[in-house]
Design a protein around this nucleic acid. Structure first.
Length: 587
RNA sequence: GCUCCAGUAGCUCAGUCGGAUAGAGCAAUUGCCUUCUAAGCAAUUGGUCGCAGGUUCGAGUCCUGCCUGGGGCGCCA
């Protein structure tokens, strides 16, 4: 109900001017959702804030405001309460009309942004030379979710993966490819992709054991930098191997297929220009053989200004250089208005540094918002960063598989208890959707900035703020449809919605708040707010479902309740889809 | 040493631009299935919001200091 809020704010501003004169024009009426439903639907806190300025008690100010306030088309008469709060309660007829409007709207009342922007979302940047591990879970799940939400709100979203596809590790892999799979360079040969990690491990083993091999690897890097054709071909084969493996996992996780790979190799030709431009601007300083930009507000352990090294003393570039090139390209060529980096919180300094240099170089202007969205870590039960038993990084694929196995186990136990028979295809599908959904939801439902302890049992729990709980609410609605042979699409656009019971009001009001939540997420990029909203929605639906008969109800309640149930299911489906999670008809 | 982040119920965590009596889930205790999937609903118990000051009509939220934990701090990404 963004539109309702906007209109109410206008009315308040008019009332403020009418009551106290033009100098209060443009005063924010501090209109927020009521802190407690017993106070109504919205409250204005403006009277308290004006007390000092106007030299009157807040309650008197509030009284004067509501005398001038005309909201009769939306609300019951406003009430002054407490220290000077102005409470507003929406009229039933208004709520019913709003529900009717969203019922016939495929977007469920969520308007497209009036100021669409070109937004770049920075997807995780796996080092292509390694198999993806758990460290990529949060950036990919949260980045994907933010991209989906912004796109749904009408923004032009570009999804870019800044993959590590260049540099030293590739020398080793290219050298190993030449040695172990010489035929791969002759014809287009299929290498077993599931074996990416053993390919990497084997290469690593050769590299560590054999000095001559190390020399060949170094040579390969030089050849790669020099653009040697055969080396480039080998490099492409290795990239391909990795990309296809990663893509498989991305697809399985349900990440958007529209991710564009724009890795380090893409920026490689632009790096020299970055250095030259920094030099031209007088920002570049040579220090101990390295080219640096000295930073404002950062010091090293001795208290001296800290440099950001953009070209190493051996002439090589590092990640700061590539990131700066990306900043420049994204503003100058992509013309992005907002660039979002959901990246681990450990990199707070790095982003503050490159943004500072980007600003001083004139690449970041007031016209573009560079938004670093720090992510907390995924921790093990010991409260330390999640590691496998052997102390290595946990492979993402193992994590997904284990969640699915847990979900399958839960489902099979329940089927046995209930004496249900289901096909293997049904069981496999439910386990897959629940398992993947649970992992993603567990990640998204935490405030993105805080770390959380990874626990299969909690994320797959069927009660609480979890994916299965929401899926279950959705399934319940579909059960009504099957049982009553209701086609929700045919309920009719002129069917009346009647709100009588408290549970109906509570559910209905919540259904109308989706656009407010999405607007909040659009600004602060915290997906856990959407999760919270969906959890509340599911709870309110379950209360409604528990208290009120639907199929057995008399008309007009029956149709009205069917519409509320349908709206709930569609809201959950839309909400979960924005989180990147699928729904199930039965579970 | 500098710097960033965190500290809220036994546990895991929310907490909007500072707003009314700080909320969920789990765990514990107890009710509710001849009725649309009980993977649910209802009820009870549980708090010095790390500590001390300050700003404010009003502070979990803003400011200062301190304590504790974690991250980062010159050629890895």
């Amino acid at each position: 109900m963004n539109e309702t809020l906007t209109q109410l704010k206008d009315r308040f501003e008019q009332a403020l001017v009418a009551a106290f004169g033009d100098e209060l024009a443009g005063t924010d009426p501090i209109l927020v959702p009521a802190s407690n439903s017993k106070f109504g639907d919205y409250q204005s806190n403006v009277a308290m804030s004006l007390a000092k300025k106007l030299g009157k008690p807040p309650r008197a100010i509030a009284e004067q405001i509501i005398q001038q306030l005309d909201v009769a088309d939306f609300c019951h008469p406003p009430v002054v309460a407490g220290a000077g709060f102005i409470n507003l309660a929406l009229k039933t007829s208004y709520l019913e009309a709003q529900l009717h409007a969203i019922h016939t709207d495929p977007r469920l009342g969520v308007a497209r942004s009036q100021h669409p922007q070109r937004v770049i979302v920075d997807y995780p940047s796996p080092n292509i030379a390694k198999e993806v591990h758990v460290g990529l879970l949060r950036p990919s799940v949260i980045g994907d979710c933010l991209a989906r939400i912004l796109e749904f709100l009408g923004h032009d979203v570009i999804r870019l993966s800044h993959i590590g596809d260049w540099g030293t590790p590739f020398g080793m892999l290219i050298a190993y490819l030449r040695e172990a799979y010489p035929e791969a360079l002759k014809e287009s040969n299929d290498i077993d992709l599931g074996d990416l990690s053993s390919f990497y491990k084997a290469a690593r083993k050769r590299f560590d054991a054999d000095e001559a091999f190390q020399e060949r690897a170094r040579l390969a890097v030089v050849q790669l930098q020099a653009g040697d054709e055969e080396t480039i071909q080998a490099w492409k084969i290795v990239c391909d191997l990795s990309n296809r493996t990663n893509r498989k996992i991305y697809d399985w996780m349900g990440l958007s297929p529209e991710i564009q790979e724009r890795g380090e190799s893409f920026y490689n030709p632009l790096l020299l220009g970055v250095i030259e431009e920094l030099d031209r601007l007088g920002l570049l300083v040579k220090d101990s053989g390295a080219k640096c930009v000295f930073l404002d507000g950062f010091t090293n352990k001795e208290g001296k200004p800290l440099p950001l090294i953009v070209q190493k003393s051996d002439g090589g570039y590092n990640y700061a250089t590539t990131d700066l090139a990306a900043i420049r390209y994204r503003t100058e060529v992509d013309q992005a208005q907002r660039v979002i980096y959901p990246v681990g919180a450990e990199q707070t300094n790095h982003f503050a540094q490159i943004f500072q240099v980007g600003r001083r170089a004139g690449w970041i202007t007031d016209e573009v918002e560079f938004f670093y969205a720090p992510l907390g870590s995924i921790l093990g039960e010991d409260g330390k960063k999640l590691k496998s038993r052997s102390g290595e990084a946990v492979r993402l694929i193992d994590l997904l598989n284990e969640a699915i196995a847990h979900a399958r186990n839960d489902l099979e136990t329940r089927l046995k208890e209930e004496g249900r028979q289901e096909t293997e295809a049904f069981i496999a599908n439910v386990a897959n959707v629940v398992g993947i959904g649970a992992i993603k939801y567990a990640d998204l439902s935490q405030n993105r900035t805080s770390s959380y302890i990874f626990n299969y049992d909690k994320m797959l729990a069927l009660q609480g703020n979890t994916a299965p709980y929401m899926l279950y609410a959705y399934v319940r609605v579909q059960g009504i449809s099957r049982k009553g042979e209701i086609n929700f699409a045919e309920l009719g656009t002129d069917a009346a919605i009647v709100l009588q019971d408290e549970a109906e009001f509570t559910l209905a009001k919540h259904l109308l708040q989706l656009d407010e939540i999405l607007s909040a997420v659009e600004i602060d990029l915290l997906p856990n707010r959407l999760c919270e909203y969906l959890f509340e929605l599911s709870k309110k639906f379950n209360q409604f479902y528990d208290r009120l008969p639907i199929l057995q109800a008399e008309e007009p309640q029956r149709t009205s309740r069917l519409i509320l149930a349908d709206l709930t299911a569609r809201t959950i489906e839309l909400g979960l889809s924005l989180l990147g999670i699928s729904v199930l008809e039965r579970m």
